[in-house]
């Protein structure tokens, strides 16, 4: 006798197969525990009783699928999350970046842009204003348009300010935003340094040559095969001597590209690509 739990598991599998075939998004390579939690969360607000019931609607109606896609993929972050990492970028990475006439940075999985804007602020403060571009990408187009606006809840600013100060910020964080009602709008000039674009790490190819790639707390959602795919993508577009910055609980240990990299400071997960 198959239990309800087992049937849910089977329906979930069928749904992921269907989504891959119909929409080209392959979530079968996502780590199951968090994917399943997110899908159940979506189901509970969807009005459907089961994945089996939702399946034909998701496959036939792109609008319903978009809602599910958002539920599965959306990530929330903070500006200058893990301040010691940004401090290390400031102190040990920017001196190298400054030696280039123009610096290109790929921020993969940028979600609503907190981290991309943090990098823009940091690079401006370190004297790179006008000499860099950040390509901030995400799988979800809607979250990108939100990122593009550069508007965050005002209540987040206290945490962001605290992080900014601990990361070695050289100015007053309030210089970078204007408060309106319960929202804070980041300085529009910061946006000029960032290009937001749609990119799926599970399917799309590489960008041009980059001096730095940031991809933080994205790989923890991927299974082994997809982790390697993403890392190989980063590896192929990073210039020799370029930097790869992962989340503090993500590591290159045991990965095929590991021999080509060296962590620049313990626990930062900022890796430098060796010169060939």
């Amino acid at each position: 006798m198959t239990t309800t739990d087992e049937i849910e598991e089977i329906e979930l599998g069928l749904l992921l197969d269907g989504i891959a075939k119909v929409y080209g998004y392959d979530f079968r390579e996502y780590a199951e525990a968090s994917l399943k939690r997110r899908m159940i969360q979506w189901l509970s607000t969807s009005g459907f009783d089961s994945f089996g019931q939702a399946l034909p609607h998701i496959l036939r109606n792109p609008v319903i699928f978009e809602g599910l896609l958002r539920g599965i993929t959306v990530n929330v972050s903070a500006m200058f999350r893990d301040p010691f990492v940004f401090k290390t970028i400031r102190e040990q990475v920017t001196p190298y970046l400054k030696t280039y006439p123009f610096v290109k940075i790929w921020h993969a999985g940028c979600a609503s842009g907190e981290s991309a804007y943090s990098m823009a602020i940091l690079l401006e403060e370190e004297g790179l204003k006008g000499r860099f571009r950040i390509y901030a990408t995400d799988i979800d187009r809607e979250v990108l348009s939100k990122a593009q606006q550069g508007i965050f809840p005002l209540k987040e600013m206290r945490q962001f300010t605290h992080n900014y100060q601990k990361s070695g910020g050289r100015s007053s964080f309030s210089d970078y935003y204007t408060a309106r009602y319960d929202h804070a709008m980041l300085m529009p000039s910061l946006k000029e340094e960032i290009v937001f674009a749609s990119h799926n790490l599970a399917g799309d190819g590489e960008f041009g040559e980059m001096q730095m790639v940031l991809c933080r707390n994205v790989l923890i959602y991927f299974k082994e095969h997809l982790k390697d795919r993403a890392l190989n993508l980063f590896h192929s577009c990073l210039a020799d001597g370029g930097f790869l910055c992962l989340g503090t609980k993500e590591t290159l240990d045991g990965r095929s590209i590991a021999p080509y990299y060296q962590e620049i400071a313990p626990h930062t997960r900022i890796y430098r690509k060796r010169y060939a």
Binding site: A33, S34, R38, S77, N217, I220, G247, K249
Partner: peptide, 21 residues
């Protein structure tokens, strides 16, 4: 569990982390 991450157990018994809300 590391600070600021959820700690989970995957179906195969391995540990997983997330930055979900």
């Amino acid at each position: 569990a590391p600070a600021d991450y959820h700690l989970m157990v995957e179906q195969d018994g391995k540990l997983g982390l997330s930055t979900d809300p």
